[in-house]
Design a protein around this nucleic acid. Structure first.
Lengths: 128, 128
DNA sequence: CAGAATCCCAAATGATACTG
DNA sequence: CAGTATCATTTGGGATTCTG
């Protein structure tokens, strides 16, 4: 039998030194944030390289700051790669990495649950 | 081939009236929040009814306010049920619903990706 | 063009005290 | 026990301006 996916709360994990957070929590942290999924998924769909401004239009109306910040985070985590061309005007292209691409089935599975069960969820959101 | 899971940015979705957000975004919103997964998953593991204070100890160090708020949200969405006993001292028990339970495979899948690929992720978090 | 730097506001969360 | 109420702090994110 599959071992129990031990849950680890952000709690200090008192006795041992390491935080060793719950994988699910880590995952959610990875893809939370208002624009994380839209950016990531757009890059996954595109597959190849996209320029910064193209991407910004694609996931509009994101601000430049947020797009930059989120791309940097993904880059740090190895989900997205960044290619700078020494040209003028400057040109920077982003693309999904293999690691990033490996997220697709999982993301599709999330979406799958939502499509199957989303309508059963009451009080979705009352954003205004 | 499977049809493309159309992405819907929070953008106005100009032409049609409805927001019809991307399912993945909806999903993430559902389980984001610092304590959402710890609470939900603990309830899933327990399976049966738990008292408020037990649950609080289980997902410590959550504050009372946060636990209450998150439980209310889950209850509104039909993922968790709340049972009040007219006793003194008061007793309230929470348990996962069938709908909530149906999340388990998906959550396990998230955790699965994380376990398989988590170590490949650089710069996890530098929370301090 | 692709950003960095600032300023600002709203939402999320924590701490603490109080109550039926 | 199981909350509610209030206050304070932190974080997320948008708007705007500046620059190589």
């Amino acid at each position: 039998m599959p071992m129990n996916p031990e849950i680890r709360t952000p709690a200090k994990a008192a006795s041992d030194g390491l935080p060793a957070p719950c994988p699910m929590v880590s995952f959610v942290k990875l893809v939370s944030g208002k624009w994380a999924i839209p950016i990531l998924y757009r890059l996954i769909i595109i597959g190849g390289a996209v320029r910064f401004s193209e991407l910004q239009r694609a996931v509009a109306p994101i601000t430049q700051k947020e797009l930059t910040r989120q791309l940097r985070l993904f880059e740090q985590r190895g989900l997205v790669s960044r290619r700078i061309y020494a040209e003028v005007p400057p040109r920077v292209e982003y693309s999904i990495t293999e690691l990033g691409l490996s997220l697709r089935p999982t993301l599709d599975s999330l979406a799958g649950w939502m499509r199957e069960n989303g309508m059963k969820l009451a009080a979705q959101d009352h954003h205004d």
